[in-house]
Design a protein around this nucleic acid. Structure first.
Length: 606
RNA sequence: GGUCCGGUAGUUCAGCUGGUUAGAACGCCUGCCUGUCACGCAGGAGGUCGCGAGUUCGAAUCUCGUCCGGAUCGCCA
């Protein structure tokens, strides 16, 4: 039977002096000074120091038995600490609880790692004992930030009259995009559901139904390899609106971000956000998600060096590639050894053939390929780069768009290495005017860059058949500090245009109709123009929390191999279960399953 | 799937070109200590050096294989 607590461990302060209180919590640290024992009592709200004195022999000796992570309840009186004993690092640091009664709810074994913030414990151990990991202040705070975020987001949309609608988790598998997670259907032998990569088709259908403003905080699933910023199941803020254009989506999203950031953190968001076309992002920053918190913008030297003696330059330009670079201010004194190491790193990490540099110093201008270039050309390049005395110009040459991406990687490397990133700032950025399609060598056809329901820009409609690679789309991405946190588009809402898109992508009409037929049909019964966006909630929380990994803002995340180490999911299942689902395992899988089961049996026996 | 890095005490790590009994810090246990808050002091326990083979008089250390983990690329409309 638990004592009813009167306060949490984060509540009490000098105002409560003299009050009789009851606290419940975990034993955090214990400082036994002999005649007096101090214990930090912890719950998710905070820490309160409780004191056991020698006067009460029985209580004092029971307090000596307390160990880390025991769960206890205490009754006692709030005492003010004397001035020299106040702990300014603690919310409750002005007071102690002088304990008069102690109740031990639960003892605890010594945990496999310490419950404190700056632990270097490997992630797989933390994952196995996730319930202990989550007791750590940093993770608790991240989840509480997440909890407040849900509230803020829901309030925003409800205030604007958006309808919150749940869409199915079991849906049909669709072509295009990431690999689906499949769920076998017992009652439909041989047939499978897929878990949604996003509720895309449902939310468009809802537009056809007249729910002109929809949102949902929804789990999505993609069966692809993981990264620190990628989980197989993740949460999206999914939004769709009717009778709108890009500007409405931008305005709605900017308002959401502003409210969210300012309600759950102390970060200010200024709206409207900056905008940049995909073309500009690629040619100026070498990526479709530029980190605009620092400069190092690309300059193009192709025209200057097209006729140069240096074959790598002239040949690159002749073959349609580019010679590009950026100015790194103040690093003109970089030594030969350091530049060699940098070159090696660039080759390894970006795959670029080599790195060319110009050191711009008052007494000497030194170019790594100086003997092949005229002094005038070098001078022009320095001007083009905007370099001044003391600066270093870094240059790559190669085929486009690869060379842009390589220089983009180098730009990020330099931004990090030379601490050029202003981490107190948040830079939101809309990236617009994406190409509609890209050529897929493996598939031998055009595929959507975004997804097949994205509307082409009206002015490009006539190019759709003859020059599909030149058609721009009405898609947009939202980028925050160099991380993509959302993307969306204005959709196609006309059946004939949608069919034409499938034609261009060489998805034959039968297949398209079979897989997306319901949506195409919906378009025939009166569908409004519509569009929307999906925002990556986990990533947004990660940035808000200042966490390095998505795993630090998800309560029970998967590891890199898409496993949950705490409950050992996924797992083998009984043969009976498979039989019901009409599924046979491949021979080699069956063999592996037997071996692993035998092994774990042996382990549990010994 | 490719490449690179790693696996030593409960945890994080050190342990060089092979050579006595494999160390440190934190944690844990015991004792002392009435104002600590990373308490302090004294003492103690704790190891199949991931696993298997090889080279050697001798392997944590070198070689090969294997398993596991991390980073990165492919992949992620």
């Amino acid at each position: 039977m638990a004592w009813k607590r009167t306060h949490t461990c984060g509540d009490l302060n000098i105002e409560h002096e003299g009050e009789e209180v009851v606290l419940n919590g975990w034993v955090d640290t214990r400082r036994d000074l002999g005649g007096v024992i101090f214990i930090d009592l912890r719950d998710r709200y905070g820490i309160t120091q409780i004191v056991f004195r020698e006067e009460d022999d029985e209580l004092h000796s029971r307090a000596e038995e307390l160990r880390r992570e025991y769960v206890v309840g205490v009754k006692g009186v709030v005492e003010a600490r004397s001035d020299e004993n106040v702990n300014p690092d603690l919310q409750t640091g002005e007071i102690d609880i002088n304990v008069s009664e102690l109740l031990v709810y639960s003892e605890a074994e010594t945990p496999p790692f310490e419950i404190k913030d700056d632990i270097g414990t490997s992630e797989d151990l933390r994952m196995k004992y996730r319930y202990l990991d989550l007791r750590r202040r940093a993770l608790t705070d991240n989840l509480m930030l997440r909890s407040r975020s849900y509230q803020s987001i829901r309030n925003y949309f409800h205030d604007l009259d958006f309808a919150e609608v749940e869409t199915p988790v079991l849906m049909r598998s669709t072509p295009e995009g990431a690999r689906d997670y499949l769920v076998p259907s017992r009652v439909n032998p041989g047939k499978f559901f897929a878990l949604p990569q996003s509720p895309q088709t449902y939310k468009q259908t809802l537009m056809a139904s007249g729910f002109d403003r929809y949102f949902q905080i929804v789990k999505c699933f993609r069966d692809e390899d993981l990264r620190a910023d990628r989980q197989p199941e993740f949460t999206q803020i999914d939004v769709e609106m009717s009778f709108i254009d890009e500007e409405d989506v931008f305005e709605m999203t900017e308002g959401l971000m502003k409210q969210l950031f300012e309600e759950v953190s102390d970060r200010e968001v200024s709206v409207p956000f900056d905008r940049m076309t995909y073309q500009e992002a690629l040619t100026t920053y070498g990526t479709d998600k530029p980190d605009t918190r620092f400069d190092l913008k690309f300059k193009n030297f192709s025209d200057l060096v097209a006729d140069s003696e240096f074959r790598i330059f002239s040949q690159t330009v002749e073959e349609g590639g580019a010679v590009i670079g950026f100015n790194l201010p103040g690093e003109g004194d970089m030594g030969r050894g350091e530049l060699d190491r940098l070159t090696e790193r660039v080759q390894e990490e970006t795959g670029a053939g080599g790195l060319i540099y110009i050191k711009v110093n008052e007494d000497e201008i030194k170019c790594s390929v100086g003997k092949f270039l005229t002094e005038e050309t070098i001078r022009q390049m320095i001007d083009q780069a905007g370099a001044e005395n003391g600066d270093l110009v870094l240059i790559l040459a190669g085929p486009t768009p690869t060379v842009y991406e390589q220089l983009g990687t180098l730009r990020l490397m330099m931004g990090n290495d030379y601490d050029l990133i202003d981490r107190d700032q948040d830079h939101f950025l809309w990236v617009t005017d994406f190409p509609l399609l890209e050529w897929d060598d493996d598939a031998g056809r055009y595929v959507s860059l975004h997804h097949p329901f994205t509307a082409p820009q009206t002015r490009d409609l006539d190019k759709l058949e003859n020059k599909p690679q030149e058609v721009l789309s009405r898609a947009y991405d939202l980028v925050l500090n160099g991380k993509e946190i959302g993307g969306g588009s204005i959709r196609i809402h006309q059946a004939d245009l949608q069919e034409k898109m499938f034609d261009v992508m060489d998805i034959d009409r039968g297949e398209a109709r079979d897989k997306f037929g319901f949506l195409m049909e919906a378009f025939r019964y009166g569908t409004p123009p519509h569009g929307g966006i999906a925002l990556g909630l986990d990533r947004i929380i990660m940035l808000l929390a200042g966490a390095d990994s998505l795993r630090d803002v998800i309560a029970f995340p998967k590891n890199k191999s898409a496993q949950s180490l705490m409950d050992n999911a996924p797992s083998y299942v009984e043969k009976d279960q498979l039989d019901e689902l009409h599924i046979d395992l491949k021979d080699w899988v069956e063999k592996q399953k037997k071996e692993e089961l035998a092994e774990s049996q042996q382990k549990s026996n010994s």
